[in-house]
Design a protein around this nucleic acid. Structure first.
Length: 376
RNA sequence: GGGGGGAUACCAGAGCGGUCAAAUGGGGCAGACUGUAAAUCUGUUGGCUAAGCCUUCGGAGGUUCGAAUCCUCCUCCCCCCA
């Protein structure tokens, strides 16, 4: 994997770059649709390419390990082949499940045991196992095993958790470097900065992660409920420590405004379930703010879903029609909304890139944040 | 012609003397959602000058301290037998 920094904004820390992978290039800043279980929910792989303009998507170690399982994935030739997706894939390690499945997991001395949310069976995830699984899944970028700490989080817990994540990282790197990819193309391992909301811990963690000199670096443990300003503050602090010549990935972020702010702080990669999950729940993101398409006010509004939208669904269907689909519980509603939201997110980061290159990012960002910061 | 059952809020449907402005679903309205245990979850759903009051359980009258609940008549629906 190779990262080239192409433009550095002068007014902000924003940058434009290019990541080269075996499955094609990624122009940064980029948003990566989340496809946990070998599907970006409610969106065809074809539409992700032709309409959403996705350049890379996510998969999830924990979920894919449980279903379809490693045998199927290996026999199917890895995740790309299995799901019919030829562009890059990043797999999350299961570190987020350590956080979100806290009621059905326990820490062990050398990892975590999960009780499957599907059938209750027990499965042990060590750093080594997580690397082995990600080798088998075959993502272009794989993530180190970490604990995504909750918010709020007391200092002692955060410090201890950070130490554990650093320890796990060392073991992940050892395992990664002593094993080979299984499908004939290169994989890259990204470590993850933790430290919760504590500046001194974040500093230690960012420096520790930077020293490993991996192909890219991630910031985890944010967007878990803390105020946005706190998230920005930590992101800035960490970005200033992480190497400039490697991509920076802010995990799990966020709203369109979060993403613009993140770009301004020097983040290159983002992912979030919001465009798809909120889309399935009737929430649309637009340049002028967000709308809840289920609201009665759209009942007789036959105007395009998004007159200025870049997706084919935006002008093909009306608000009244989309509202009807949600009211009727028709699955096409979720598909249209998800496609729209993802296309908007990808447009947003693509436009940000153009503005960075043109030297007008700061001004454009200010205008966009003001325009999007409301409910229509 | 004879016998029986029933009418409850937007819909369906509990309740069968006071603890009933009335269970529960559905529908309606609104909200939440940030490395996906989510096509999920939550709130709300008679009115008002709102810790109280007013009008509601097919219609009219009655019994009772008190009626959606008991009685009488009326209207309308459904089932069974001829």
């Amino acid at each position: 994997m190779k990262f080239t920094l192409e433009h550095q904004d002068v007014e902000t820390r924003a940058r434009a770059g290019r990541i080269e992978t075996a499955h094609g290039n990624i122009e940064t800043p980029i948003f990566m649709p989340v496809g946990t279980a070998a599907t970006v929910k409610a969106v065809h792989q074809r539409d992700l390419v032709t309409d959403v303009n996705a350049q890379i998507i996510l998969g999830n170690t924990y979920h894919l390990y449980l279903r379809p399982g490693l045998d199927v994935l290996q026999t199917g030739g890895g995740l790309h082949k299995f799901m019919g997706w030829e562009k890059p894939i990043l797999t999350d390690s299961g570190g987020y499940q350590v956080h979100s499945l806290k009621t059905i997991r326990k820490f062990l001395n050398d990892g975590v045991v999960f009780q499957s949310h599907i059938d209750g069976s027990k499965h042990t995830f060590t750093p080594e196992a997580v690397i082995d699984i990600q080798r088998l899944i075959g993502g272009d970028i794989v993530m180190a095993f970490d604990e995504c700490t909750p918010y709020p989080c007391d200092y002692d817990y955060a410090a201890q958790s950070m130490k554990m994540t650093h320890n796990w990282l060392k073991r992940c790197i050892t395992r990664f470097d002593e094993t080979q990819p299984m499908y004939g193309f290169e994989q890259a391992l990204f470590p993850i900065v933790q430290g919760s909301t504590f500046g001194d811990l974040r500093k230690i963690s960012a420096e520790t992660i930077a020293e490993w000199g991996r192909d890219g670096n991630a910031i985890g443990g944010l967007s878990v409920g803390e105020p946005a300003e706190m998230m920005y503050e930590i992101t800035q602090q960490v970005c200033d420590i992480l190497p400039k010549d490697k991509p920076r990935y802010l995990m799990g972020v966020g709203t369109p405004i979060n993403i613009l702010e993140g770009i301004a702080l020097g983040v290159d990669m983002f992912d979030c379930v919001m465009p798809t999950r909120n889309g399935r729940n009737g929430w649309l993101f637009t340049k002028n703010g967000r709308i809840n398409i289920r609201n009665e006010k759209w009942k007789n509004d036959f105007s395009a879903i998004d007159e200025n939208g870049v997706s084919f669904v935006d002008t093909m269907y009306s608000k009244a029609y989309l509202r009807h689909l949600f009211a009727a519980g028709e699955m096409l509603g979720a598909m249209i909304a998800s496609t729209h939201n993802l296309a908007f997110y990808l447009w947003l980061v693509g436009e940000a890139r153009l503005r960075i290159v043109a030297g007008e990012f700061a001004q454009w960002k200010k205008m966009m944040v003001a325009a999007m910061d409301n409910k229509i």
